Computed example of a mutant assay.
Amino acid sequence: MGKLRIVTDSTADLPDDIVQRYNITVVPLKVFFGEEVYLDRVEITSEEFFRRQTNGETSSTSQPSPAEFVEYYTPLVKGGDEIISIHISSLMSGTVQSANLARTMLNYPGLEVIDSGMAGVPLGILVLNAARAAEEGKSGEEIKGLISRWLSELEVYFMVDSLEYLQRGGRIGKAQAFLGTLLNVKPLLTINGGLVSPYEKVRGKSKALARIISILGDKFGYGARLQCLVTHGDFPEGAEELKKGLRENFNCAEIIDTRLGTVVGTHVGPSLAGCVCLPVKD
């Protein structure tokens, strides 16, 4: 009898040690620099990607093909595993569509594809917690119920220098991109309805990062017990500032450091710092 296995894509931006520890299958998206193509988090590191991006090179991205999904699913199918495949929002990428086409091609009833409506660390926290639940012996139905609950409870906020990269990739409107360039204003963003959405604008990086902490305080209550994933592009000091604020204002059961991969990095740029938090229930 097979096991319950969790599959995701590389936009979950989970650290390699977590992927290996929980035996998570990660299907990579692709990033392009001109004619050069790389598998996200496989053939190019975040360090190399952001070096090229800050040097002015422009990148683009694409989802895995259905055939590539079949390749990753097939060993699990042969093992008789139950598969929960959790992916980047279908409004941001065609990845879910490719996964569903692969499911049809395999005609395997034990495969469930879930559109998370998220990308980056909020997808990552869902995948990590689903993998932990599977290890604890939870059923597929129980895990799907937990994912729905976590999606209703999590809060995600991030700061960028400007909306230039999101606007360039068609992920946000041009008018909003213009506003983000004014007067040292730093856009605070969230993910809502499957899309990146402006939350508010704050002047200056430190104030913007402090505002993320105060928003979380408003949402959860100061001193709340939280599980948090913190991320950045090429802005480690921003991530450190967020972690300090989280530790000082909340009872953090867990803070996990992550780093943006090349696909999410293409669409938000190097200046991002942000976090996702979930309330921890005893």
Rank of each mutant, 00 (worst) to 15 (best):
L4E: 12
V7Q: 02
V7I: 03
T11Y: 06
P15K: 05
V19T: 01
R21T: 10
N23Q: 14
L29I: 08
V31R: 04
E35C: 10
V37G: 06
D40I: 09
E43K: 12
E43C: 04
E43H: 14
S46P: 10
E47I: 06
E57T: 09
S60P: 05
S62H: 12
A67F: 12
A67N: 14
V70E: 11
K78L: 14
D81M: 08
G94Q: 08
A99N: 00
L106H: 00
Y108R: 02
E112R: 11
M118P: 00
A119Q: 04
L123S: 10
A130R: 01
E141C: 04
L146H: 05
S148V: 02
V156G: 07
Y157F: 15
V160N: 04
D161C: 09
G170C: 04
G173I: 09
Q176R: 14
A177P: 11
F178D: 10
L179Y: 08
G180K: 07
G180F: 08
T181Q: 15
T181R: 15
K186E: 05
L188T: 01
I191D: 00
V196N: 07
K205I: 09
L209K: 06
I215N: 06
Q227W: 09
T231P: 05
H232A: 01
G233C: 10
G233W: 09
D234K: 12
G238W: 10
K243N: 01
K244T: 11
K244R: 15
E254S: 13
E254A: 07
G261C: 01
G261R: 08
T262M: 02
V264K: 07
V268H: 09
G269D: 07
S271L: 08
S271A: 11
V276D: 01
L278M: 10
